[in-house]
Amino acid sequence: MLIDGVAYIGNWPFRPLRYNTAEGMLERMDRCGIDCAVVSSLNAVLYQDVMNGNRELAEQVRGCSRLIPLAVINPAYPHWKEDFAYCLDELGMKGLEIFPGYHNYPLDLPELKELLKMAGERKVPVRVPGRLVDIRGRHWMDTPENLGGAAMKTIVELSPDTDFLICSCNTAVAAKAIQSSAIPHPGRILYDFSRLERFSFSPSFQSLLKTAGEDQVFFGACQPFQYPEVQQVKLYYSNLPEETEKKILSGNLMEIFMPEQK
């Protein structure tokens, strides 16, 4: 089984995307041998009110068990607490995603801490992408903000009992930063490897595996922004033990999203 832990449905204002509807994504997933994808609303990243995007997403994935929806919540926006609860209770969403850079709030915003704690209390994970688009090709009206290792450490320290999915950044660096924290983190922290390299010039994928361990690494393809096959190549050439590969391909995410099937 292969689960893509980093996927989005919706549009992006700066370039056309392909396979970015539920139907399109399923088509590409079939081609790539991906069984399930953890998706959030790309439109919610830039809509004033994220709930418009969350509702659109819920509509698109309704009845499709292969797409696991996350709620995008902006804790600096009115009514966020009720919106988050609505997404979990009424729209069937299975987790949370935050975008501090796009939603323009600092990491010491008290409501952010409250939101992350709520996620922990509700036992749903929080996905935190370092960025959506590489800074080199980013449009001048896009945000210049990225979340790096230090920011990721700050975020996970806000809510030690919450599970986090850290993705779309140099997660080898982020894992080291987070492990240096003096605050124990009973919740799980998983890392994708979409921005890491497998080969000898900069073998950061191996570095992540060494730092975080096989129980904390997951497959994230960054659909529809990136070619999913890029991540598959890293695993193909890594010759990992079968059990390790299974955990990375699906096992670690199953423990979070489908504990009953594990």
Binding site: R198, P228, V230, Q231
Partner: peptide
């Protein structure tokens, strides 16, 4: 240019 995985993956996926 230092990104073997990325470039092989792009070729495979295109």
């Amino acid at each position: 240019d230092g990104s073997y995985s990325a470039c092989i993956g792009k070729m495979i996926g295109a």
